[in-house]
Simulated scan of single mutants.
Amino acid sequence: EVFTDDVALLDEVLGTGFDSFDRLLDYTGKLPDHLLIAEARSRFLSRYAERYFSVCHDAVKRADPNHMILGCRFAVAPPREVLETVKDYVDVVSINNYSLTAPTGILRHVYEVTGKPMMVTEFSFKAMDSGLPNTKGAGIPLKTQRERAEHCKRYIDTLLTLPFILGYHWFQYMDQPKEGRFDGENSNFGLVKIDDEPYRLLVETFKQINFNAEKTHLSKT
């Protein structure tokens, strides 16, 4: 589309001697910094996203037409082309985030492009006083359980100031084993230890936050 079937123009941009677009399958070089390449990449990304989200949307609706589609839980801030596509296929945009503070800039950007309500579908904090290695798994380790609880409260309090936020989901209920789970993660993500003993301060923090979450959200937005 971008090169309008002009193989000579493609050769000029890539510095190749192709006689057809099929020869692109043989190209292994680095793509040059060129406006036409950028446009081709953007259009490909849009079409790829359109195909992915339309297929997923239609499959879900065929099997379960009466429930909302809560997105795909983006792990990073998606490209604009993806956001402009996904808004037509989901009811909620979901994103996972393990930064020390709520990513308000990213969340506002996603909402401005999509106009869709949002959920943070993974966030967590881990601490070294748990006795776990914390060497594998997302996020930067904190020192103590008190810091975990404090960071958790600040993170959620910030989310609750955003009117388009529908909810948040902590990762996860139970700590990971010190030996590592199936992929090696060995971190203090739990509300409870692996033997089901609660981290009291964190649990109490969540009880207070969740009890007042709806009222807090309404008052701040």
Rank of each mutant, 00 (worst) to 15 (best):
D129T: 00
E150T: 15
R146L: 06
D129I: 01
R146W: 01
D129W: 04
F123S: 01
P141Y: 03
G137Q: 03
Q145M: 12
F123P: 00
L132F: 10
R146Y: 02
S130H: 00
P141H: 07
H151A: 10
H151E: 04
E150S: 13
T121P: 01
T144Q: 11
R148E: 07
L132C: 11
K153F: 02
K153R: 15
P141Q: 07
N134K: 09
E150F: 06
C152Y: 14
S130C: 00
G139S: 09
L142P: 11
E150P: 05
G139V: 09
K126N: 14
F123R: 01
A149K: 05
P133V: 14
T144I: 11
F123G: 01
S130W: 01
K126L: 15
E147D: 11
A149D: 07
N134C: 09
L132T: 04
T144F: 13
T121N: 08
L132W: 10
H151I: 02
A149C: 05
S130E: 00
L132M: 09
F125L: 09
G131S: 06
L132E: 09
F123D: 01
L142C: 08
V120E: 04
K136H: 11
K126D: 01
S130M: 00
E147M: 08
P133G: 13
K126P: 02
R148V: 13
H151T: 05
V120W: 03
R148W: 04
R146D: 10
P133H: 13
M119H: 08
P141D: 08
N134D: 09
K143V: 10
H151L: 12
S130G: 01
T135H: 03
K153D: 04
L132K: 10
T135Y: 02
A149G: 10
D129G: 03
Q145Y: 11
K136S: 12
K136T: 11
E122R: 05
T135V: 11
C152S: 12
H151Y: 15
A149I: 05
N134F: 05
K153H: 08
E150Y: 06
F125A: 08
L142V: 04
S130V: 00
R146N: 02
M119Y: 12
A127C: 15
P133E: 12
N134M: 10
G131M: 06
T121Q: 10
S124Q: 00
A127Q: 11
I140S: 13
E147H: 02
V120I: 15
A127V: 01
Q145G: 14
C152Q: 05
S124C: 09
I140C: 02
